[in-house]
Design a protein around this nucleic acid. Structure first.
Length: 581
RNA sequence: CGGGGCAUAGCUCAGGUGGAAGAGCGUUGGCCUUGGGAGCCAAAGGUCGCCGGUUCAAAUCCGGCUGCCCCGACCA
């Protein structure tokens, strides 16, 4: 490509509305252009990056016999009502009506659409298993789009869906995708780690997120500093020796004086209570009263300095829930939030194991402005259910090796795979007849990669400050960037053009004759080619040109006629870029 | 959805006690120059986000709105 004939540009200064490294670099290099919050256009070089990522993904999907389809973005409400997601997906779903007032939405994901396609055709066990994928836009009305295309309202995604006959078969398929994902991120030259994750709105039985660690991430992960344990923060467990704690409690039953009601006016938060009573927050037992989707009431107890993980609590309760409102709390406990406790509650109590350290605890007295002190769990109230529902914190003991401590890191979720089971095939009646003439639901899985987000991740990793990025060979829009220093010098320019004609398929040449060398170098840094060829004074002095391998920070002098035989094989060998974050 | 910030030329930003709209870069034409966004001359380029109010007079003061960015909540 010749710069003079191409649509390509750069920004001299970082744009006002960009802050993260990838966003700044993608804007400055002219890869993307914002059109509204979370909505971007891709320029020719920006789109080349997307297509290069897609190429890798397509090859790896084909390798596991996953076939490409194209599903509509505009989808009728009826399909979403079949699974209930029309109501449960909430504000994130972009809803619209056609001229006949019929409801539609822009698809945020495609489980319903693909299930609709497959159920139309699949009837027999002989047609299974198989899997399908597509690459295309997704729409989510994000409350807060962020960091350029890292979190956008419209984004590009690869989503795949698998259809199996048995759980065992489906688990094998899941493993195949898991391995394919590892290969994909490997080829993308990104350090991405599979992490066990909560299933969220997609649902299903289990899932893995593929996390890329970076400063501008939005996902929190807990990692052990001594073993290989790693987990999403919201579902991460941590080690507490409950047996030991229970024994300690027994030994204190006699020594701690009996419970005593104390006046604690207006102490509706653990902080204010701890200050008023001059005791550590960790001595307080917090009570959360929740109402489940099916209308059950459950009291969850946790130590004052800890937070409940809603995802972990959900795993215990096995259904959705919300915090009960003030009216309900008053109806059941006769006191407001902040003054309720487990002493008189007759329903199900789920205690987090952290409260076992509260051997001289404090709980609400079920009476406004009063708490009880000298509370021992198991003595003053029954603890029939001890679970792990607390959010893990940095410094907690690793639940796996029980030796290391957990550290928190932020990352970006680039991929997410789900074992769905019958979550969609059952409500949408995707059935097949097995060998024994029994009707069965197809076992499904789904597998996503955020392609535009992955592009951002590459800029986060390979960006160097605000002025330069060196892209991996398989990703870069151009592998070689040729700079003739002086286009008006016939020898220099014709030599540069000759080199360009030999490398045409992988190269861009900056043939602009009105542009200073400094500007060409600056643009070269921003446009990301891993190899830079400079044709200038060295040609006059020694008859040579300069090759700069930007990843390796290596410089070589070469006669122009050597280039073809040396550079192309070098590019084809796709050397692994140096450095890791 | 809560909190904070910003909005003036294509871009990055000054200005502001109310009284003729500014710079740098970019663009166009001319010259000069060719190893890190170089220099000189000339020119074009604006509804100072929108609506309303105060005033003889508003980019500037007041009220409302919108958009964008950041923190948080939310979120495959």
């Amino acid at each position: 490509m010749k710069v003079s004939e191409y649509f390509i540009f750069s920004l001299r200064e970082p744009p006002r509305d960009a802050e993260s490294k990838s966003h700044i670099l993608m804007m400055r290099g002219g890869f993307i252009k914002r059109i509204a919050a979370g909505i971007y256009s891709f320029t020719p070089i920006g789109f080349k990056i997307i297509k290069n990522i897609e190429k890798i993904i397509r090859e790896e999907m084909e390798r596991i016999n996953c076939y490409e389809v194209q599903l509509p973005l505009l989808t009728p409400a009826e399909l979403w009502q079949e699974t209930g997601r029309w109501d449960t997906y909430g504000k994130e779903l972009f809803r619209l009506k056609d001229r006949n007032e019929r409801n539609f939405c822009l698809a945020p994901t495609h489980e319903e659409i693909i299930t609709d396609l497959v159920r139309f055709a699949v009837k027999s066990w002989k047609q299974l298993p198989f899997s399908l994928f597509q690459i295309g836009q997704k729409y989510r009305d994000e409350a807060r789009p962020r960091f350029g295309i890292i979190r956008a309202k419209e984004f590009i995604m690869k989503d795949a869906y698998s259809f199996d006959r048995t759980e065992e078969e489906a688990k094998n398929t899941y493993k195949k995708f898991f391995d394919a994902y590892c290969r994909i991120f490997d080829r993308l030259k990104l350090d991405v780690i599979p992490v066990e994750a909560a299933v969220g709105a997609i649902g299903g039985k289990f899932s893995h997120e593929f996390i890329f660690f970076t400063d501008y991430g939005e996902d929190k992960v807990m990692i052990c500093n001594s073993c290989s344990f790693i987990s999403k923060k919201e579902i991460s467990s941590f080690f507490l020796d409950t047996d030991k704690l229970l024994n300690e409690i027994k030994s204190k039953m006699e020594t701690i004086p009996s419970k005593q009601k104390v006046y604690t006016p207006s102490t509706t938060t653990v902080e204010s209570l701890s200050e008023y009573l001059k005791v550590p927050i960790s001595q307080i037992i917090k009570s959360f009263f929740v109402e489940t989707q099916s209308g059950k009431h459950i009291l969850a107890l946790i130590r004052g300095d800890r937070q409940i993980s809603e995802d972990k609590l959900k795993l215990v309760i096995k259904e959705d829930f919300k915090l009960a409102d003030e009216i309900k709390v008053r109806e059941i406990f006769g006191a407001g939030k902040g003054f309720i406790g487990p002493l008189n509650f007759k329903g199900r109590i789920i205690a987090d194991k952290t409260i076992l350290t509260c051997t001289n605890g404090i709980v609400g007295a079920d009476e406004d402005d009063y708490h009880f002190i000298n509370i021992i769990p198991g003595r003053d109230f029954e603890i029939s259910e001890i679970h792990d529902i607390a959010l893990a914190e940095e410094g907690d003991i690793c639940p796996n090796c029980k030796k290391g401590t957990l550290k928190e890191r932020v990352g970006l979720e680039l991929g997410h795979i789900f074992y769905l089971g019958e979550k969609y095939s059952s409500p949408m009646r995707l059935e097949f007849t097995d060998k024994d003439k029994n009707k069965r639901y197809v076992i499904m899985g789904c597998y996503g990669i955020g392609i535009s987000r992955t592009a951002s991740a590459i800029f986060e990793k390979y960006g160097e400050g605000e002025n330069s990025v060196v892209l991996p060979y398989e990703i870069a829009p151009f592998k070689v960037h040729i700079i003739p220093i002086n286009t008006k010098d016939d020898v220099i320019f014709s030599t540069a053009m000759k080199i360009y004609s030999e490398l045409k398929d992988v190269a861009i040449i900056d043939d602009r004759d009105d542009t200073s060398p400094g500007e060409k170098f600056a643009d070269c840094d921003l446009w990301g080619a891993p190899i830079k060829i400079v044709v200038g004074k060295l040609l006059k002095e020694k008859g040579k040109v300069e090759i700069i391998y930007r990843h390796e920070r290596k410089r070589e002098e070469m006669r122009p006629e050597e280039i073809n035989e040396k550079i192309l094989p070098y590019i084809l060998s796709q050397p692994a870029p140096k450095g890791s974050p």
